[in-house]
Write a protein that binds this DNA or RNA. Structure first.
Lengths: 353, 353
DNA sequence: CTTTAGCACTCCTTATCCTCGAGTGCTAAA
DNA sequence: TTTAGCACTCGAGGATAAGGAGTGCTAAAG
């Protein structure tokens, strides 16, 4: 009685329903489908097929006398098999390239900007993370004299980011002591993690005068802070307000939940599997509760050899997967290319947002 | 016929109405007022007074048979005269201090974080800007060798911010040339604005070999970028979603307008007058169209001697002015203190968000 | 066995009407 | 000047009805 086979016609119907629903956000009726399929079959036939598809779990009915909408399972099939893997149009490509051509400076800033761009390109909220391989350490310290009571600390990490800060000392520090200090830092405080830094600092406490120890610990503190932040894998989210344009979020409670996730608990947003470059998560496939009624498309790109950037889009399950996927993957590829092009090393730089 | 004088009782009534309306968002009726004022006068008397106040423009009536709500003029009077200048409670002060005590590093990052804090403290969206006196120039360049094809450029601006970037050269640059390059930069490219830098660069083009000229121009480009960004007075906004919790923005079109302003055109948010440290702009007092139905409370604080930070809160006209004003001004004062405390110079540092 | 026309039925949407009650404005008396 | 009394207004909320899109089923046709 229950049909098990998914005939070509059933798939075709599912495709029509999905695309129409994505477009209009209204349940799709048999009459429209019949016509959209060429008018060769009657709506009654379609209704039979619809009943099958519903029974098989690909479609849902908001209520007895409404049209059909795709279930998550339906969306999944659509995304896997039915959706036409669309290419970005020349115009879209041009826009993306134009956006990327702008001078982007600084790794973190690039990441944040990438999120913004994607959000505006796809018209949904987006998020961006740079997933380093973790465990950044300092490769090198440089100290530049400014005046009696201050100097500039330049810290270079082993993933080639460079950050600097003006450091004020409480006690005057003779400028000729600066090389000593730098030497101390470079011999004892490179290549090690934050906790070990603390230990080392303690062990040196006795051997050094205050005028050397204070600026030393201030510099270490700064270095530790940099490493902390980069370990935290800061997540940037933008375009939350795009959600409000979607009819499914006119109901504020849903919207609020998602907004909260996007602003406060953004660290629990999905990350794609290690080896796939793009992943689509539909409704209940998401582990996070607030995302059960939403979908996420997330892509990754390479930042040089040992870092991976992540960029994701959040929208209603009724999201335009074809368009989002096309644009997002084009964007991610462009980023990979961009990072690769500069002697295959990223233009890493200082910036903490 | 029309009363001109604002008796003490009228003011008292206006105060009760305003505070009640701020609290409940419902029009306030004569019965409630009579009771809230001690029960010594009848609601009929209150009604007479209400009619006067309405005629005088301090109150409004959504429709004939509803209670009264304050008009912008009413709010204005309330804010100017009636509102009790509330102090932050010990607990609030403690919270604010705790938030500020956290290690805040980097000027721009502090500013952005300040916005977030304020937003969470007052439960409305907030924005933050650092209004420099404009016209930043470079005070000094330092170049640190890395390897044959790259070096670190450290740029210090005349407002004591320090930023740095790793620069890759296309041609190999002998390390012993680096001091030359630094010298060139420091003698020709300090203390001047971006356009002049370009001119200078042109004039030097002929005299230098490519292996020196290329890295020179890359460094200049970086410096120009820093100056550009700091000239732009970047505005940070946060907490937009707080708007959705306000009943007046349940109607999405209003909310959207404001959201747009807060995310896209944030540069047109109000700035307080030069000499006042806090300003309250109520509804139509705002010049920007999207803010005509909203209110803004904005405060400024000092960053060292020659910069001024700005921090503002956006909410419905029915905003809790007393609470917001108290918290915001306390927060701004704390910031001023914080910036002053470190030898009265801010902990300026590198960071572009 | 599949397709299709026909038709009763479901149930959402929208409009209309009605009632209820909070609150007003006015009048006239204290 | 204040207050009690009272008619009146107007929105909120609920019930009811009409309209319509869409379904499911039946029975006939291919």
């Amino acid at each position: 009685m229950t049909p098990v086979e998914l005939t070509a016609r059933k798939k075709q119907i599912l495709k029509v329903v999905t695309e129409r629903y994505i477009d209009t956000a209204d349940p799709v009726g048999s009459k429209y489908i019949a016509q959209a399929m060429g008018g060769n079959i009657s709506s009654a036939t379609i209704r039979n097929e619809l009943a099958d598809l519903t029974e098989m779990g690909y479609l849902e009915q908001p209520h007895t006398s409404a049209g059909r909408i795709p279930s998550p399972k339906g969306y999944r099939l659509y995304v896997n098999e039915l959706m036409e893997r669309r290419q970005v149009s020349d115009q879209e490509a041009a826009e993306i390239n134009a956006a990327l051509d702008g001078k982007m400076k600084g790794l973190d800033s690039i990441i944040a900007q990438a999120g913004q761009m994607v959000s505006s390109i796809v018209s949904y909220p987006a998020y961006a993370v740079a997933a380093g391989k973790g465990g950044v350490t300092v490769r090198r310290y440089d100290l530049l004299p400014v005046d009696e009571t201050s100097f500039i600390a330049v810290v270079m990490t082993d993933d080639s980011r460079v950050k600097s800060q003006l450091i004020r000392t409480d006690l005057p520090l003779p400028p000729d002591q600066l090389p000593n200090l730098a030497n101390l830092l470079n011999t004892h405080f490179t290549g090690i993690a934050v906790p070990e830094m603390g230990a080392k600092l303690m062990s040196l406490a006795g051997q050094l005068g205050a005028e050397l120890f204070m600026p030393l610990s201030q510099t270490i503190e700064y270095a530790a802070d940099i490493m902390d932040r980069s370990a935290k894998n800061q997540v940037y989210t933008t375009g939350q307000t795009q959600l409000l344009r979607q009819p499914e979020f006119q109901d504020l409670s849903k919207a609020n939940e998602l907004m909260d996730l996007l602003t406060d608990r953004k660290d629990s947003l999905p990350v794609p599997d290690e080896n796939t470059s793009m992943q689509i998560l539909i409704g209940p496939e998401n582990v996070h509760e607030a995302l059960k009624d939403a979908s996420v498309v997330v892509a990754s790109y390479d930042i040089g050899d040992d870092m991976r950037g992540l960029i994701g889009v959040v929208g209603p399950t009724r999201m335009d997967y074809a368009a989002v996927a096309a644009r997002l993957s084009y964007f991610a590829e462009s980023l990979t290319k961009m990072f690769g092009k500069n002697n295959q090393l990223p233009p890493k730089e200082d910036d903490i947002p």
